[in-house]
Design a protein around this nucleic acid. Structure first.
Lengths: 333, 333
DNA sequence: CTGTTAGCGCTTTCAA
DNA sequence: TTGAAAGCGCTAACAG
């Protein structure tokens, strides 16, 4: 570590270390001393000791981020948003990954807290009682992303609405025999809400229809492998819980010589850039994850400063019309 | 911050704070006191103050990571590798992004250093004199990723070799009129090395050939827009500097009704998962970026412990044969 | 095995 | 405007 301390600078300038500290923190220092100190600091390249400083003052300008995993496009978009705002405000990110382990999420939160971060953003898998407990115990602000719970601060994409909108689109294209290729319910937002929105639209607005559920995971490969189970149901359309899942399914269908969208329509969620490159391009719902990260960060910085302006935010939901859905005609006028 | 301190625990247990400290750090404590202390800590949920601890001891168990940007598949794979090893060793990542700004890279390094990290991994854009200066001044280990320079520790993908291997593959498929759709030379690894490897193979092994260079950037969109310039040269094959660029080009060719690989062969670098889903799937060279991150982290942890075992490492290079290159016949037997 | 003591480098009263 | 002094919470001799 940098050997020279505030005391060294003080000695060099024949002043007390208090004066140097004052210089550093914008207190009263005579012009004359200011010059001397400035010179000494520049000459030595002095940098005040981070830990000593933080031991006295209470904030660290560190914000903790807990993510479920790193190698995900969604997560990196969120991180990008967080990073942008942190940068503007001179905060540094302390990052930990829970590796999709809900228990670990709690320990990450505690670990981050213990390391003196001023606030924590958790891209969470689920908000359990443990989470709420941590939220209440820790005396720093925490914001949860990706899940909703009234007892804590949280911001999320409206997955339910996304599912609902997509269902409406399927219905308008006259699909009534559908497979929902989704993930298990451990994931609240994708596994439950997205699905529920889709099902609810049909339940509320359509008379005769069938939706069969096929479970997969988030991986491209597994989706590919589940293709066989999907086509067993002979659906006219398949809604995939993510674009990545859709990609996997498409590969399977391609290999089977099943034409998209002529023989089967498909769609996803996510709005990844690659979705538009596919032949056919994928119909999907785009979420502005970067914005999610930005808003979360702005809010946490406000909370740190005790500003409570959690204005109601709406993260954009955009239906991207691709070529992967065919209107198969029928009763819808 | 957590109000209770080591002193509080000591008071509760009627022992001195040294005993508590010893308990925490594995020194001699009688069984009897151990029990008492353990109980008190559990009851209060005491957590030792990170900053106070770091002020005394010299290491922070923090490792700094500087990346060029976050929303990149490559970067997130590297981060994933770094994170895995950090986790195993109880280190936390302090992350900063340079946003592709080479000046900022230096300031990120300094900022991280100033925040007391034990070592820094820099996924660098270029190793300039400023970098070398920082490397020498800072009294903590630094490892650079992605660029080679003898004066500093660095680990990289062998981009030159990747280019060379790909060129050999193009040649075996009898392509002699080629466009290299690449990025500008500010990016050493992709802009220079990858390209040089490709060109060198042809220079060294082939008599009659043409390689035209078309410049683009890393974005999908720009690559798409440059499609027009690419086909002007009427190449039999196009080698793209990244899979993403290749995706952009493919979209353009698709729209123009130009058949891949029948009318034109294409290939990329990167080995992204999506490359295999494309129709046709993309021939590419896969890099093990996660491994790169892992090795870098292992090495930096060793350097922190003053172990100097930088065994020569080789990051895997794998030619993935897709359907995007056609053997157009000819002289090669 | 335990308590006393002396700092780590910095900020912040307080009195001058 | 400045310096002396106290102390943030912890660790690490040292003497017992």
């Amino acid at each position: 570590m940098g050997k020279i301390t505030i005391q060294d600078i003080a000695n060099m300038c024949q002043v007390s270390k208090s004066s140097v500290s004052r210089y550093l923190n914008g207190g009263y220092v005579s012009e004359e001393n200011k010059e001397k100190i400035k010179y000494a600091i520049e000459k030595t390249g002095f940098q005040s000791n981070f830990f000593a400083k933080r031991l006295k003052t209470k904030n660290s300008n560190l914000i903790g981020v807990v993510i479920p995993r790193i190698d995900s496009i969604t997560v990196s978009k969120v991180l990008n948003g967080i990073n942008n705002i942190c940068e503007e405000n001179n905060y540094t990110i302390l990052m930990q990954s829970s590796n999709l382990d809900i228990k670990k999420e709690i320990s990450c939160i505690n670990s981050l807290y213990n390391q003196g971060v001023d606030g924590i953003i958790v891209y969470t898998l689920d908000i359990t009682n443990e989470h709420i407990k941590a939220y209440n115990n820790l005396k720093i602000p925490i914001i949860f992303l990706n899940q909703k719970n009234d007892k804590v601060n949280c911001i999320c994409i409206d997955d339910y609405k996304a599912g609902y909108i997509m269902a409406e689109h399927f219905y308008k294209n006259n699909h009534k025999n559908i497979v929902f290729l989704g993930v298990n319910e451990q994931d609240k937002s994708v596994g439950i809400n997205r699905k529920k929105g889709f099902y609810d639209f049909y339940k509320q607005n359509v008379k005769d229809y069938t939706i069969n559920f096929v479970e997969t995971d988030f991986s491209f490969k597994k989706a590919y492998n589940m293709g066989e189970n999907v086509i067993k149901y002979k659906p006219t359309g398949v809604i995939c819980a993510t674009d990545n899942i859709c990609l996997g399914l498409m590969l399977y269908l391609n290999e089977q010589g099943i034409k998209i969208p002529d023989e089967i329509s498909v769609a996803g969620f996510g709005g990844y850039e690659v979705s538009s490159v596919m032949k056919p391009s994928i119909t999907t719902i785009e979420f502005d994850y970067e914005l999610l990260g930005k808003i979360a960060t702005k809010n946490i910085l406000n909370l740190i400063k005790n500003i409570d302006n959690q204005e109601k935010v709406d993260i954009n939901l955009k239906l991207i019309l691709g070529e992967s859905i065919k209107n198969i005609g029928g009763s819808y006028e």
